[in-house]
């Protein structure tokens, strides 16, 4: 269907979606701040913003998909998408780098500093620096928690995500061979693995909060643990959602063996999320 490639560059028409997106973010930000400061209806404003954002995404992506299926994107556009997706993933890498940096800094630098020489003698005389910790002040106030063990759910989750990397690649092979059954099956399995991962992580969080005393407030260990795994989990959620869209589009007959960058972009993203998880597994769960 998208064989009708043109040599002319496709310039999209004026679009209302961006400004709708801006309104959505403004509403979300104002609502979020209201909610954080317990101002009436803050949460509703936030949700309204989210709803507008979803509306925008449906509309905008829908338009892009229609353009694509109508064959308006030539080779050059395709290659633009490749560049931009790569740079986008690079920006995500740097976002995670900030949090990995925080983990490194606290583990290797600030926690040891708190437990040695003048800082310890003058300010935190009873503190014994060791990782994991909730920090000298909170421990002194009686805060106790159990660190998360690597070889339970996290190990299973590692297996799940690694296998999902395989299944998505297998789906890609199917697509390239024009084997639509393999594509749909592979995507279906990937989505399932992603969903199971998310459920297990939700269970793990629940367990941490209710049984282990491990919360966001449990010092730097809790903070880095939840922020890193939390942002990762959020990325899995986004990735899974995108995979579901790809699944639906595959079922609807979109994509051809040559022309399927949307699928590839999602699989790149998924592999990226995978790699982050492996790092998390090693640095957050395993080497404590």
């Amino acid at each position: 269907m998208s064989l009708a490639q043109t040599d002319k560059y496709y310039l999209p028409q004026p679009s209302l979606w961006p400004i709708i997106g801006s309104v959505a973010l403004l509403t979300m930000a104002v609502g979020g701040v209201m909610a954080m400061h317990e101002i009436n209806h803050g949460l509703w404003v936030l949700l309204a913003g989210v709803a507008v954002l979803f509306f925008m995404m449906f509309g905008w992506f829908g338009e892009v998909i229609r353009d694509s299926e109508a064959g308006r994107y030539n080779k050059q556009v395709d290659s633009s998408y490749r560049w931009s997706m790569s740079w986008f993933i690079f920006s995500e890498v740097m976002f995670f780098a900030a949090f990995f940096g925080a983990l490194f800094y606290t583990r290797v630098l600030s926690v040891p500093w708190l437990g040695e020489s003048d800082t310890m003698q003058q300010l935190w005389p009873t503190f014994k620096a060791a990782w994991p910790t909730a920090g000298p002040g909170l421990t002194a106030d009686g805060l106790k928690f159990t660190p998360m063990e690597a070889w339970g759910i996290p190990a299973i989750n590692t297996l799940l995500l690694l296998s999902s990397g395989v299944t998505v690649t297998w789906a890609h092979w199917g697509l390239k061979k024009n084997n639509r059954m393999q594509l749909i099956l592979g995507l279906g399995m990937t989505v399932t693995l992603g969903v199971v991962f998310l459920c297990l992580q939700a269970y793990e969080y629940h367990h941490a909060y209710t049984q282990m005393g491990l919360t966001l407030g449990a010092g730097v260990y809790g903070a880095t643990f939840f922020m890193l795994t939390g942002f990762h989990g959020f990325h899995v959620l986004v990735g899974t959602t995108m995979l579901i869209v790809m699944l639906l589009r595959s079922i609807a007959g979109h994509f051809t063996a040559e022309h399927h960058f949307a699928f590839e972009a999602v699989s790149w993203y998924w592999h990226f999320v995978d790699v982050v998880w492996v790092l998390l597994f090693i640095l957050v769960y395993w080497l404590i």
Binding site: W113, L114, S117, D118, T119, Q122, L123, W124, P136, G137
Partner: peptide, 8 residues
Amino acid sequence: GIPGFIRD
């Protein structure tokens, strides 16, 4: 002066 730390 950093709260919680001593610098000399």
